[in-house]
């Protein structure tokens, strides 16, 4: 693995050069929020920020994405082509370790042996992830260490940057990552830099004060699909779906057709298990009749079903759902409450 040491003040220049060659997605300031956005001329990528309001999954699995196009012919519509051209190379810069892990978790779903999702896979293959370790975990709501992550986890990253104070340690973890080597100069990292990173990593993990029994509750979840506890979780839920839209691992979608004059397109849009219509059948029958069943589904999907299907918990502990829920439903508290039952 190649490692480089770069002075802090040159990072902005490196990012600028990358933006000149490929599409660059990075955290930018947008009114009061920090958001991942495609960096255009005149926009500055932030080098100092906590985390972004939006999860970067949208760059592989957009909120709304054209799957195919079609046009009206004499005997009906005919397929004319796929959606947007996504063949361009992209670098996502400044991804936090929790979000970088979310890509690995989503790969398990979108890139299975039997059914591959070409839209996700192509964008993922064309994108290099430059992650920045959380030397100081940014929020009190962070709980990555409870769900197999850590503030300095390199999982899902092609290049990993660690803030050592005066300089950054840049680790080039994959072939894709090594293609960016040319931007980072020649200063090789010495053993001292690595030792410093180790110390920072250990200190950072201790900074995550909040832990939840994410694995420990699995046995209870396996045994208690029906339990009075589920009557309590959803009571104040407004079914707004914000938690699912902010979540880096939520991946449910809807497919809709849109036609203008003779041309149409088939689009997929993010959907949410929080919505009654999500599972309502044409007959009117709905297997999940109330918010109770929908909340149980969301929680079970993350901490039980995804584990059964693929191995990892479908939660990276970023805390976005905790911060953005308008009625303060806290997924960490649900896990804790379950562990006490």
């Amino acid at each position: 693995m190649e490692k480089r040491l770069i002075k802090k003040d040159v990072l902005a220049g490196i990012v600028g050069k990358i933006a000149g060659d490929v599409n660059l997605v990075a955290p930018v300031k947008e009114e009061d929020n920090v958001l991942f956005e495609l960096v255009k001329d005149g926009v500055t990528a932030l080098s100092s920020y906590r985390n972004t309001k939006n999860a970067p999954k949208a760059f592989f699995f957009p909120r709304s994405e054209t799957l195919m196009r079609y046009t009206r012919k004499e005997k009906g519509y005919e397929f004319t082509g796929l959606g947007e051209d996504v063949s361009g190379q992209t670098v996502i810069f400044g991804v936090r370790p929790c979000d970088a892990r979310s890509f690995v978790i989503l790969d398990l779903l979108f890139d299975q042996d039997k059914y591959k999702d070409p839209y996700y896979i192509e964008k993922r293959a064309n994108t290099t992830v430059v992650a920045v370790g959380c030397t100081k975990p940014p929020y009190s709501t962070c709980f990555c260490t409870s769900v197999d992550g850590s503030p300095m986890s390199t999982e899902g990253a092609d290049v990993f940057l660690t803030d050592l104070g005066e300089s950054y340690l840049a680790e080039f973890l994959t072939d894709k990552g090594e293609k960016l080597l040319k931007y980072f100069g020649d200063a090789k990292a010495d053993a001292g830099a690595e030792k410093k990173k180790e110390e920072i990593a250990q200190a950072a993990a201790k900074e995550i004060k909040k832990t939840i029994p994410a694995h420990e509750i699995k046995a209870w979840l396996d045994a208690n699909f029906e339990h009075p506890f589920w009557e309590t979780v959803h009571k104040k839920c407004l079914a707004c779906g914000t938690c699912t839209f902010m979540c880096p691992t939520c991946h449910c979608f809807d497919i809709q057709d849109e036609v203008k004059a003779a041309d149409g397109k088939r689009i997929r849009n993010w959907d949410s298990c929080m919505f009654p219509l999500f599972t309502r059948e044409t007959s009117g029958h709905n297997p999940r009749t109330s918010q109770k069943e929908r909340w149980r589904q969301r929680f079970m999907h993350k901490f039980r079903y995804y584990v059964d299907m693929f191995g990892p918990i479908a939660c990276v502990g970023c805390g976005r759902c905790v911060m953005s829920c308008p009625v303060n439903i806290d997924i960490r508290k649900i896990a804790e409450d379950i562990s006490k039952l």
Partner: peptide, 24 residues
């Protein structure tokens, strides 16, 4: 079984019964 479906290939997330997708 019948369930509301969209993708039909176990990705869109709506036809699961526990950890099984009815479509897949």
């Amino acid at each position: 079984l019948e369930m509301r479906m969209k993708c039909g290939i176990g990705k869109c997330g709506r036809c699961n019964v526990g950890h099984k997708y009815v479509c897949k």
